[in-house]
Design a protein around this nucleic acid. Structure first.
Length: 415
DNA sequence: TATGCCGGGAG
DNA sequence: CTCCCGGCATA
């Protein structure tokens, strides 16, 4: 029976379910409709989505089209959703480009020559198992520390013994010392994050504060305190190089990644601008943290029981850089690139530019969670952040992040 | 009971 | 790989 039902359900799904986005997505609706029919299994009626809107996901077997969104419309190239608008109007749709959540929203994107295949500069981390922002913070702190050290006579003139990493140091502390001899001779010091064993092969999630800006679709505030230093990190896959100047980063990208023979800016079409991002780093915080590493510091010889506890650390850093009470406008999210790639939200974009979407009222702070207790249960405790389900409700399930729709850990409202 | 999401199945 | 859901843990 399921086999006979499948084609019919599939066609039905093509017509009505998820309306336009599935129509854009082609066979996806058919597959889902067929699957729904084939499975024939359902959740208990109590938990089943109610009504027209709620039944959307299972519309292959169920409800009519949602009144919130009109029927199928032209959707030639699956533009991104208004939930996550990440490319300027008029720019061609570049899925790989839009995957990058580190990019400051609204910044102009250069358009590469048509037909030039490019590797994805970065891929959004699907899930963060680490403490939020930990590895990223370590990298950035280390990188920024290098900046200060490179101009400091204190360590540049220090004996070589000071440059040998102590065995008990954490990776980031090693990184603080080790690359002193490996600075590039181009004037811009460089630090290859990919060589750091603490760094993943893909760009790490942004700093909590930075993530907030990407998450909420705002570029990082341009007002910078004197203690805030700007770094530029290459987003190219497996690179992650951090430079102190934008020009240096552009040159790096042009030469290394784009394969330009010359690093002259006039030869560039500006594409390299797309492959790096800015990082704001509080220098006073970093140097405070470094003071304990300095050979001149009396505390250097006393290895702290927990080096991370010794630093002012993420909370101070993030609170120093940005106001934390940012409204969680669901415009940008870590899952945004994926969602935009799908036809799903893509057609929401071309059909409902101003959706009557319920604005989440929660105020998310970017305070990292405290270190989890050892021996914690394998299942991580439920976060107190409102999730898509709670924010949008079952009736607006189409607004959920993909993970929530799939009953996975929410990626939009991270804990 | 509602919710979050892990684990696993289907394609 | 994406998509989906049963079922469990938790609030």
């Amino acid at each position: 029976m399921g086999a006979r039902l499948a084609p019919a359900a599939g066609r039905l799904g093509m017509l009505i379910q998820r309306e336009s986005q599935w129509a854009c997505a082609g066979g996806g609706a058919a597959g889902r409709g067929a699957r729904a029919a084939r499975r024939g299994r359902g959740r208990p009626a109590a938990s089943r989505p109610r009504g027209a809107g709620g039944g959307r996901l299972r519309a292959g077997v169920g409800g009519p089209a949602s009144p919130a969104r009109p029927g199928p419309g032209p959707c030639p190239e699956r533009p991104p959703s208004p939930l996550q608008p990440r490319h300027p109007a008029g720019r061609p749709w570049r899925p790989s480009a839009l995957r990058c959540p580190f990019r400051v929203a609204g910044a102009p994107r250069p358009v590469p020559p048509a037909g030039t295949p490019r590797p994805r500069p970065c891929r959004c981390p699907r899930r963060r198992r680490d403490p939020p922002g930990k590895s990223r913070l370590d990298e950035v702190m280390a990188a920024a520390a290098l900046t200060s050290l490179s101009t400091s006579t204190l360590l540049l003139g220090a004996p070589a013994a000071a440059c040998s990493p102590e065995p008990g140091l954490e990776p980031w502390k090693e990184a603080l010392v080790r690359p002193l001899g490996s600075c590039s001779s181009s004037g811009d010091w460089g630090w290859d994050l990919a060589s750091d064993r603490s760094s993943p092969s893909i760009p790490s999630p942004p700093l909590p504060s930075e993530a907030a800006h990407f998450l909420f679709g705002e570029p990082a505030p341009k007002k910078r305190k004197s203690s805030v230093r700007v770094l530029f990190q290459c987003l190219w896959k497996r690179c992650g190089k951090v430079l102190s100047t934008a020009s240096g980063m552009q040159r790096h990208i042009r030469l290394v990644h784009l394969g330009r023979r010359q690093a002259e800016p006039e030869q560039s079409d500006g594409e390299e601008d797309f492959y790096y991002t800015e990082l704001d780093v509080g220098m006073d915080v970093l140097t405070d943290g470094l003071s304990s590493l300095s050979p001149a510091s009396p505390s250097a010889s006393v290895p702290p029981a927990s080096p991370r506890l010794e630093l002012p650390e993420p909370r101070t850093l993030s609170s120093l850089l940005h106001p934390l009470a940012l409204p969680p406008v669901p415009v940008l999210s870590p899952v945004a690139p994926r969602e935009a790639r799908r036809g799903d939200d893509a057609c929401q974009g071309c059909l409902a530019p101003t959706r009557p979407e319920p604005q989440p009222t929660t105020v998310r702070t970017c305070v990292p969670t405290p270190p989890s207790r050892l021996g914690a249960s394998p299942r991580k405790p439920r976060g107190d952040a409102k999730k898509c389900r709670k924010v949008y409700g079952m009736d607006h399930r189409h607004l959920w992040c993909t993970a929530c729709r799939w009953k996975k850990a929410c990626q939009r409202f991270l804990d």
